[in-house]
């Protein structure tokens, strides 16, 4: 994977939320999980959305990942509204431009580490030779070259999450979204995963949005948003602000 292969123009908005609102109906009751949230992730940003359990983090992430639809408001991907797009078009955006990392890793159990990483490239119909090369390179980058043939159940939690990170990055997406990527890992392993994400962000300027309730994740962010009861509170900038 060549240097800067993820880099588009730094600072351009990749993912934006406008007045994003989501209700769930539980019986007769309407739960407002997300309340008029505005949010922008720019190219190269490493954003952490931090909040307690039930604050609406997963709801926000699912909407940004285009796997759920808002009750009101809009998600703009690369500046274009998505609420009117049909499911096919959303799936196309997901496989071409979005990488996803789950709390529970969500690897396909019957596929080896390398095959799991290769899977998104099959969805994008990438030629075989290129698939092989990209899988090899990204596995090396996440430090799993030696374990490429192992099935998920033969890997530790940290190794599985590395495979998942590799799978999210292999298509060279514009943005990688992660929902509690460290929640199922011990703190040392969680730290390694965050360092991996930070390194990928710094080296390739991949845009990351990580939602978490884990305070240990916060130091890796250059930008921290707080969410509470479905509303985004203050924004805190840490480290070097990226040039616009």
């Amino acid at each position: 994977m060549g240097q800067g292969s993820f880099c588009y123009v730094k600072g351009t908005p990749v993912l934006e939320a406008r007045e994003l609102t989501k209700f769930y109906t539980l019986g007769k009751e309407k739960v407002r999980a997300l309340d008029r949230v505005d949010f922008t992730a720019r190219q190269g940003d490493f954003t952490v959305v931090n909040g307690p359990s039930g604050s609406g983090k997963s709801t926000l992430l699912n909407l940004l990942a285009l796997i759920d639809r808002p009750s009101a408001g809009e998600v703009l991907f690369e500046g274009k509204p998505t609420s009117t797009l049909p499911e096919r078009a959303l799936a196309h955006l997901r496989r071409e431009k979005i990488g996803l990392v789950f709390q529970t890793f969500n690897l396909i159990p019957v596929l080896s580490a390398a095959e799991n990483v290769e899977y998104p490239l099959l969805l994008t119909r990438t030629p075989r030779a290129e698939r092989r090369e990209r899988v090899r390179a990204i596995l090396a980058e996440v430090g799993l070259s030696d374990l490429a043939r192992r099935r998920p159940d033969e890997l530790s939690g940290g190794q599985r999450q590395r495979v998942a990170v590799a799978r999210a990055l292999v298509t060279q997406p514009r943005v990688v979204l992660a929902d509690e990527p460290t929640a199922n890992l011990d703190s040392a392993t969680g730290k390694q995963i965050m360092e991996l994400l930070q390194g990928l962000n710094r080296e390739h300027c991949v845009t990351f949005v990580v939602v978490t309730h884990d305070p240990a994740v916060v130091p890796y962010a250059e930008r921290v948003l707080t969410i509470r009861d479905g509303r985004i509170g203050g924004e805190e900038r840490r480290g070097e602000p990226r040039p616009a």
Binding site: A65, I67, A91, H92, L93, R94, R95, E96, I98, L100, F102, N106, I108, P109, Y119, P120, L123, T124, R167
Partner: peptide, 10 residues
Amino acid sequence: EVGTVRALGA
């Protein structure tokens, strides 16, 4: 698993 691959864009 269906949810996973659909989220990945299948």
